[in-house]
């Protein structure tokens, strides 16, 4: 019983990170109709910035975070301006492939700027663990979960209550009608990429603080987050978050109870099964009908 509970708790904690990165993927898909395969390398690059400024230069985590956030904003802006806008609303695959090219470029840039070594990020997070009725709760992971939940809530508030957020949601439903309400397509596109990039940064720092920082360290998480997003229907933001937590729990359960092979191929199995049975995802629904 406590084994099951432990798996659930661990799964929820891992799931928080998946949820955040899945949110980043789904946000792009929902508004821009494309999948950003450079999500992981963008986040990883900025996490290295955080490490470089905060630890290597010794300026502390505050300035490190600031520089990393500025880097994420600049990167999101640059990708939108330099790749997304020139490729225009054209062919979906060209944009997807361009983000794959960007992924290669960024991974190698990371290696050149920051080296191919394995670093410990030393994030200023509490360590230790609580024992609650036989279930171990790792403090670092608990804080990470809290940050993930807080970030998700922040995004939800922005989308729900700010003018920009309303514009983004309107644009996602019907770009042309949004334009007729005065919502500028460019502004929406720019901020979507910037927000997505910031989410990637947060996820990257969180993953790095419980594992290590190295070139391509976020790729595995990206595959899981992508699975979570597919599970949630790719274009549903609540679906992506729920998908992240569900996947986290499923992974933890399969680690405890299933053969190793199942754990390894779990994301892939989920993607295949979801695509074959419910291509719109577990939470995907067809948009409320339009007359």
């Amino acid at each position: 019983m406590s084994g099951l509970l432990q798996a659930l708790v661990t799964g929820l904690m891992t799931g928080g990170v998946y949820a955040l990165l899945a949110l980043s993927i789904a946000l792009i898909f929902k508004t821009m109709d494309t999948v950003n395969f450079a999500t992981a390398s963008m986040g990883a690059f900025c996490a290295f910035l955080f490490f470089q400024v905060g630890t290597v230069l010794g300026l502390g985590w505050g300035p490190g975070l600031l520089v990393a956030a500025l880097g994420a904003v600049a990167l999101g802006w640059a990708v939108e301006r330099g790749i997304v806008r020139p490729l225009g609303g054209g062919d979906l695959f060209r944009l997807v492939l361009a983000t794959m090219g960007l992924d290669i470029l960024l991974n190698n840039a990371t290696q050149i700027f920051f080296g191919s070594g394995v670093q410990n990020i030393n994030a200023p997070l509490p360590t230790g663990a609580w024992d609650v009725g036989g279930v171990t709760i790792d403090l670092t992971r608990l804080v990470i979960l809290a940050i993930a939940v807080a970030s998700t809530a922040a995004i939800a508030l922005v989308l729900r209550y700010t003018n920009l957020g309303i514009g983004m949601r309107a644009f996602a439903q019907d770009p042309q009608a949004a334009a007729l309400m005065g919502v500028p397509a460019r502004t929406v596109s720019r901020w979507t990429w910037i927000i997505s990039s910031l989410l990637g940064l947060v996820a990257a720092i969180m993953v790095a603080s419980v594992s290590v920082l190295s070139v391509g360290f976020l790729q595995g998480t990206f595959i899981s987050a992508f699975t979570a997003a597919v599970l949630g229907g790719l274009s549903s933001l609540p679906g992506a978050v729920a998908g992240g937590f569900i996947l986290g729990v499923l992974e933890a359960l399969s680690i405890s109870y299933a053969p190793r092979a199942v754990t390894i191929v779990l994301p892939v199995l989920i993607i295949l099964v979801v695509l074959m049975i419910r291509p719109a995802g577990l939470f995907g629904r067809l948009s409320a009908q339009r007359a």
């Binding site: 309303i166 007729l180 409320a288 339009r290």
Partner: peptide
């Protein structure tokens, strides 16, 4: 007011109306 209404299907009536004030910052 376009052909086919083009209301935002996932927005409530209120949200649809508020979206129209986008240019005034809502």
């Amino acid at each position: 007011v376009p052909q086919g209404r083009r209301v935002f299907p996932d927005f409530t009536v209120e949200e649809n109306l508020r979206t129209a004030a986008y240019t005034r910052g809502g």
